[in-house]
């Protein structure tokens, strides 16, 4: 290995001053790539100084992560191949007096190979993606077995609506909150998004989920968080000058705790409406 390195070094020297810097830059790029690639096996807590994916907190998020890693491997392999050939060619075929380039115009077989191999990889990626996509967007859990919450984003806050005691929306006993979503752990939650003014996007990084809320139509997303925790909700679609502060909290309670919280809010609501009457 050392011998090889020294050969490489001596070659690099002979290449002259113009080829050394690009080789250096490529190495830097590769180093950055491998540094990033080393991340996923690291700890999975949501804290700590890491420049990598936030902890995946749902099963779907785990699926998306493995897809991400798959694509990272495939694309990295291609990048390494291209960079390796590039460096080799640039060094090997640099101009030398008395040598003449080969008059090669093409090679059908090569061209077919470098269309077929990427095509196969892309089909594999697309196939793998499609399953996760269906799970996220098409195979929704049944509403009767899930907790349904309506979120009505507006400039620049998340208005949250729970069905009240009657179990229906758009009635007087709806429970409302701002910028705060309380959900139970281990239960399917369907969030229906109805924007009140412009387009917003409901984004929880740890769920790897993002769904635009479009005024005039209802969009839906679902998630199931196995363990209690607190997450940040961010708006991911530019919605105006307060876009960056359109921040909410998503609190996942243990099921019993959630029931208690919900019962408390029901009582509060009942007291409030009794007051008003």
């Amino acid at each position: 290995m050392r011998a090889r390195l020294s050969i490489l070094r001596s070659r690099l020297h002979s290449v002259g001053r113009w080829a050394a810097p690009p080789a250096f830059a490529v190495l830097l790029l590769l180093a950055a790539g491998t540094r990033a690639g080393a991340g996923p096996v690291a700890d999975s807590s949501s804290h700590g100084h890491r420049w990598w994916l936030p902890a995946a907190s749902t099963a779907v998020a785990g699926r998306i992560d493995s897809l991400f890693i798959l694509i990272l491997w495939i694309t990295s392999a291609f990048l390494v191949l291209v960079v390796a050939l590039f460096v080799a060619f640039v060094i090997r075929y640099r101009h030398r007096e008395g040598r003449r380039a080969a008059h090669v115009t093409g090679n059908m077989l090569l061209e077919i190979v470098w269309m077929a191999v990427p095509a196969a990889c892309l089909i594999a990626i697309a196939y793998a993606s499609n399953g996760a996509w269906s799970a996220m967007k098409e195979e929704f859990p049944r509403e009767s077995e899930s907790l349904v919450i309506i979120v009505k984003p507006r400039q620049f806050q998340w208005d949250v609506v729970y069905a009240g005691a009657d179990g229906r929306f758009e009635t007087a006993d709806d429970i409302t909150a701002i910028n705060r979503l309380d959900v139970p752990a281990g239960r399917n939650v369907i969030v229906k998004l109805m924007a009140q003014d412009v387009i917003h996007s409901f984004f929880v990084p740890q769920f790897r989920m993002k769904q635009d809320a479009v005024p005039g139509m209802t969009t839906e997303m679902w998630f199931n968080v196995p363990a209690p925790g607190t997450f940040e909700i961010a708006c991911a679609e530019l919605c105006g000058l307060g876009h960056y502060r359109m921040q909410g909290r998503l609190i996942v309670h243990a099921p019993a705790e959630y029931d208690a919280w919900y019962a408390g809010r029901l009582r509060e609501k009942a007291a409030e409406s009794a007051n008003a009457r």
């Binding site: 998306i64 694509i71 694309t75 990626i125 499609n130 996760a132 996220m136 967007k137 989920m209 991911a236």
Partner: peptide
């Protein structure tokens, strides 16, 4: 090449759900 390859991440619909608008 780097730009083209990073585009494949966005082409994958589920990965895009995370990467989109970041």
């Amino acid at each position: 090449t780097v730009g083209g390859l990073s585009g494949i991440f966005m082409a994958s619909t589920p990965v895009d759900a995370f990467i989109h608008d970041t």
